[in-house]
Design a protein around this nucleic acid. Structure first.
Length: 805
RNA sequence: GCCGAAGUGGCGGAACUGGUAGACGCCCGGGACUUAAAAUCCCGUGUUCAGCAAUGGACGUACGGGUUCGAUUCCCGUCUUCGGCACCA
């Protein structure tokens, strides 16, 4: 019989659905395993082979863990609020809901055709009111705890588009000819900074890729330093700066403040005032990018004022420059040009003094010396001396001295900023807040607050979302008076911040999640997705999770115990797949031509899961051949019934190979090394063919090993072998530890580390025996003739090495 | 600039804890079956030198050193590629 993948795959997909093979049992005494994909935004372009890589991996793990006796939760859903559907609506008037539904249907069709073993009864959609009711509920909890607040925030405002843009969008829009200005707008902000320390500390216990943890650490950007108050010479105010290098205070030769600093203009002397005002005005016009991007040279302006260095008593000129950010620290810095490259550059530019206070191997007038691993010099006054101290001691001593003099305080700072949470958009979760005429805010008690139908999806002219154009939705009154609803919606991140919880209890209308179910299923044991979410999504989700933990809604500190980033699959041209390059490989094309089993196997065979690798359509032919080979083991001829399967014992050699394969496939699957697991199965299949093996145990073992990878063909062949129970329900086979070891070993013989011959020896032979045998090997003898053996190294079951002369 | 990951045949990649480099697959070449083709099967396939040949030698894991009986693996230095951050004081 011929291997007809399309009818076989359809047959089993239908059967799994009918028999609910992969429905997750609610009550179970089995250990649980929760394997989760980063759920997709259902776009209109459909899924390509790259999207399916992570899903295939997680499905193999889900199936494998089931076969190892776990109660597995493996769900899927849709992160369906978002811009593309709304942009499409603006253009065509089609309601985003319609577009979204169509796209979901297409995505789901492809995922179904891949034979993924999701429990579809738990499917969730972030745009369902039954779901976003709880997104809104979480928002209100944040609000109640003071973690959501309104604030004037500088945003990227595009006048032509009447909307706020994300930082990432700014470049693109400017290139398109739009103007983007920085403008303060009242925005909802979430106080993620209140959790900075916990978000940082708890990273340590996570089984995540080191680079992702590092990226989050950098993003949070914790630093320990000191805030120092500098007295001003002709001014009664003090100027507070933040520094992480109090040990270099003796080397501070000037101060710099940000143009937005409240004292910037006040410090300008009459003589400098015009210049200062000009500078501040120009800085305002610059975009964030112009200011923080790669700058050729540092520019600034002198205020004319001086501050006093508390360590030396020297007057320090106060400058203004836009390389100092108002949003970090105090918006003012002390400059130590000898030991900071930015300060050095600035000092050279404006001929400011450079004083060495950390012992440097070269002249600091010539170039900067930033190394912390040196000792302090030129750092003493009547009360304190740092000279000879290393960084840590000098830091401590100076910080303490400043504290006792009441001119400084130790301070921890973070790069992490609070999270701007509102969007001027229609297609998102409405923020359930009412603004009353008297200026008070009250929460919406009747959740979910759903989106009204609108005529047009354009943002309103005031910089508000289209919701501001719907009077009947917008205005209302209750016992507290007349109110206007919040018109901002939540960003797309909101829905994905907690969806992994809802899969555990998707239908619950009373609670976000049932606590008992939560305790059973959390954490997520394995979370697979792209590295592009290394910071934002994963940080936001961790933040919400910690808030939910504090609320007692969840029992774990962290949501995702183990994280795995699959590498991107590039197009055949080695470039990132994109419509514009025309190198996209649509999943449906490959499915049609080769089938789901071949596609699944090939996705995993391409290379290590975490690695970026190019797609190569030729390569999938090899996988197709492999599957036909497997098929022909059971159906050797094109016509008729399966081959006669015997229970005759198979050769020792094949039996050992079988047990080795079981071991390797099991271990590699545990470690997500699917490429080598597959190659091991190929080796096994090649040997079964060579031996024309028809042994039942061998063939059934092969099918069981392969079934997590290629579920359809293995179900079909399993049935052909006379089984009525789905192979998905059969346990993973055990291996015999004795049979995975070879009984006869090929021992290598080396002369000075170079291979000169081999011989066969029983496993675990005596060293003397191996040595004697090695000396008899013909190809070795001639190398040893007339030479003195200085040393003989014998590694049992491996090699013999003669060091000669 | 800083942080992180990685450099192995024509290509994707494999190699346990320092122990026979190139598993498995693709491509390519040769052969079998066939009227022919497809499919399938078998053989070969790192580079280079010697030989009619069987075969044998040298070189070879980005580059340069080092440790070791022995290094893709460990150490030092250099280069390149990819990802992230980008004046955070």
């Amino acid at each position: 019989m011929k291997y007809d993948f399309s009818s076989i795959e359809a047959k089993w997909q239908d059967r799994w659905q009918q028999q609910q093979t992969f429905k997750t049992g609610e009550e179970s005494d089995k250990p649980k395993y929760y394997v989760l994909d980063m759920f997709p935004y259902p776009s209109g372009t459909g899924l390509h082979v790259g999207h399916l890589e992570g899903y295939t991996a997680s499905d193999i793990i889900a199936r494998y863990k089931r076969s190892c006796g776990y109660n597995v939760l493996h769900p899927m859903g849709w992160d369906a609020f978002g811009l593309p559907a709304e942009q499409f609506a603006i253009k065509t008037g089609t309601h985003p809901k319609i577009t979204t539904e169509e796209n979901i249907r297409s995505f789901k069709g492809t995922l179904h055709a891949m034979g993924f073993s999701y429990d579809w009864s738990r499917e969730i959609n972030t745009t369902d009111s039954g779901y976003f009711k709880w997104s809104q509920w979480i928002f209100l909890k944040l609000y109640d705890r003071g973690l959501a607040y309104m604030s004037e925030v500088d945003v990227n405002w595009c006048e032509e588009l009447k909307t706020v843009l994300a930082n990432e969008e700014v470049d693109e829009k400017i290139a398109d000819g739009y103007t983007v200005v920085r403008r303060p707008l009242r925005q909802w902000v979430l106080k993620i900074t209140a959790y900075a320390d916990r978000l940082l500390a708890d990273l340590d216990e996570l089984e995540w890729p080191e680079n992702v943890k590092q990226m989050q650490r950098n993003w949070i950007g914790r630093s320990e330093g000191v805030e120092i108050d500098f007295e001003l010479r002709c001014h009664d105010k003090k100027l507070r700066v933040y520094t992480t290098r109090p040990d270099t205070l003796f080397g501070a030769t000037y101060l710099v403040i940000s143009p937005e600093h409240p004292l910037a203009e006040k410090l300008a002397t009459a003589q400098q005032l015009v210049e200062v005002k000009n500078y501040i005005r120009q800085a305002k016009l610059k975009t964030e990018l112009e200011r923080t991007g790669l700058q050729k040279e540092k520019a600034g302006v002198f205020t004319g004022s001086y501050a006093i260095n508390p360590a030396t008593g020297d007057p320090l000129p106060v400058w203004i420059s836009d390389f100092v950010l108002i949003s970090y620290g105090t918006g003012a810095i002390m400059s130590v040009p000898a030991h900071d490259s930015r300060d050095w550059e600035f000092a050279k530019q404006y001929k400011l003094p450079i004083i060495e206070v950390i012992k440097s191997p070269h002249d600091v007038q010539e170039s900067v010396f930033e190394d912390k691993n040196s000792i302090c010099v030129n750092s003493s006054n009547n009360e304190i001396s740092l000279d000879g101290l290393a960084f840590a001691e000098a830091f401590e001593l100076m910080a303490s001295w400043l504290e006792t003099k009441s001119v400084g305080t130790r301070k921890v700072n973070y790069k992490l900023r609070d999270w701007i949470f509102s969007r001027q958009r229609y297609w998102g979760e409405p923020i359930p807040i009412k603004h009353y005429d008297d200026g008070t805010l009250r929460t919406e008690t009747n959740l979910p607050l759903v989106l009204p139908e609108v005529e047009a999806y354009h943002p309103s002219s005031t910089g508000e979302s289209p919701l501001a154009n719907i009077p009947h939705w917008l205005y209302g009154a209750d016992e507290h008076g007349k109110f206007r609803r919040e018109t901002n919606t939540m960003p797309q991140w909101a829905g994905s911040c907690w969806y992994y919880l809802r899969f555990i209890d998707p239908e619950n209308s009373q609670q976000l999640i049932n606590p008992e179910k939560e305790r059973y299923w959390m954490n997520v044991d394995l979370y697979i997705g792209g590295a592009e979410h290394a910071v934002l999504h994963l940080l936001y989700a961790r933040f919400w999770h910690k808030v939910l933990f504090d609320l007692g809604v969840v029992s774990t500190k962290e949501p995702f115990r183990k994280l795995f980033n699959q590498g991107m699959i590039l197009g055949e041209d080695n470039e990132k797949m994109s419509k514009s390059r025309g190198n996209v490989i649509p999943a449906d094309h490959v499915l049609q031509r080769y089938g789901a089993d071949a596609l699944r196997l090939y996705e995993m065979f391409l290379g290590p899961l975490e690695q970026v690798k190019p797609w190569n359509t030729n390569g999938i032919e090899g996988i197709s051949r492999f599957l036909s080979k497997v098929w022909r083991l059971i159906y050797p001829s094109l016509e008729g019934a399966p081959a006669t399967i015997s229970s005759e014992p198979i050769s020792q050699e094949l039996l050992r190979r079988m047990h080795k394969t079981i071991k390797k496939v099991g271990e590699d699957t545990e470690n997500l090394k699917f490429n080598t697991a597959i190659s091991e199965m190929m080796v096994f299949v090649n040997e079964l063919h060579k031996a024309e093996c028809r042994n039942r145990e061998a063939l059934e073992t092969l099918l069981l090993l392969l079934s997590s990878f290629a579920p359809h063909i293995t179900e079909e062949l399993w049935e052909a072998l006379g089984h009525s129970r789905s192979i998905s329900l059969i346990p993973f086979p055990p291996y015999d530890p004795e049979l995975v070891e070879d009984s006869v070993i090929t021992v290598a013989v080396q002369i000075n580390g170079k291979l000169r011959g081999t011989f066969l020896a029983p496993a675990k032979s005596e060293k003397e025996h191996l040595l004697a045998e090695a000396k008899k090997v013909e190809s070795v003898v001639k190398f040893l003739e007339g030479k003195t053996v200085v040393r003989e190294i014998v590694v049992v079951d491996k090699l013999v090495n003669f060091a000669i002369q």
